[in-house]
Amino acid sequence: MKNRVIFALVLCTAYALCSTATASESIEQNLTAVRVYWSKSSETDLVTGFAGDFDASRESNYLIGANWGRKYSDTLFGLPLPMTANVGVQYFNERGHQNDAYGVTAFIKAHYDWRLPFSQKHVRLGLGEGLSYVTRVPLSEQRDFAKRGGAQSEKLLNYLEWTIDLPLRQFASIDELIQGRVEELNLGFFVFHRSSVFGLFAESRGGVNFMGLGLEARF
Rank of each mutant, 00 (worst) to 15 (best):
M1Q: 12
M1E: 10
K2C: 02
K2Q: 11
N3G: 05
I6V: 09
I6K: 10
F7M: 08
V10N: 06
V10I: 14
Y15P: 00
Y15H: 05
A16C: 14
C18M: 12
A23P: 01
S24K: 08
S24R: 10
S26K: 12
I27P: 05
E28F: 12
N30H: 15
L31K: 15
V34D: 13
R35F: 01
V36K: 07
Y37L: 13
W38Y: 11
S39R: 04
K40L: 04
S42E: 03
S42V: 08
S42H: 02
V47M: 12
V47H: 06
V47N: 04
G49P: 06
F50L: 08
F50H: 05
D53L: 09
D53E: 12
D53Q: 10
F54K: 15
F54I: 15
A56L: 07
S57V: 07
R58S: 14
S60W: 03
N61H: 11
Y62K: 04
Y62M: 04
I64H: 00
G65T: 06
W68A: 10
G69R: 08
R70T: 10
R70V: 09
D74H: 14
T75K: 06
F77H: 01
F77A: 02
L79G: 02
L79Q: 10
L81A: 05
T84R: 15
T84V: 14
A85H: 02
V87P: 02
V89G: 13
F92C: 03
F92I: 11
E94I: 11
E94T: 11
G96V: 13
N99S: 12
D100P: 09
Y102S: 05
Y102R: 04
V104K: 02
T105Y: 04
A106D: 01
F107C: 03
F107H: 15
F107P: 00
I108T: 09
K109R: 12
A110G: 08
A110T: 06
H111G: 12
D113L: 07
D113V: 08
D113K: 10
R115F: 11
R115W: 11
P117A: 14
F118G: 04
Q120G: 14
Q120P: 03
V123T: 14
R124A: 13
L125Q: 05
L127M: 09
R136H: 11
V137N: 00
P138D: 07
L139M: 10
S140M: 08
S140G: 04
Q142L: 03
R143F: 05
D144R: 00
R148K: 06
E154A: 00
K155P: 00
L156N: 02
Y159W: 03
L160W: 13
E161N: 06
E161C: 01
W162I: 07
P167G: 03
L168W: 01
L168G: 01
R169Q: 13
S173Q: 15
I174G: 03
E176R: 10
L177I: 15
L177H: 13
L177D: 08
Q179P: 00
Q179K: 14
G180I: 13
R181C: 07
L185S: 05
N186G: 05
L187Y: 01
G188P: 06
G188K: 02
V191L: 13
V191H: 06
F192G: 09
H193W: 12
R194Q: 07
R194C: 01
S196R: 00
G199M: 00
G199F: 06
L200D: 08
F201K: 00
A202Q: 02
S204F: 03
G207L: 03
N209W: 10
F210T: 09
F210Y: 15
M211K: 02
G212I: 13
L213I: 15
G214I: 05
F219A: 10
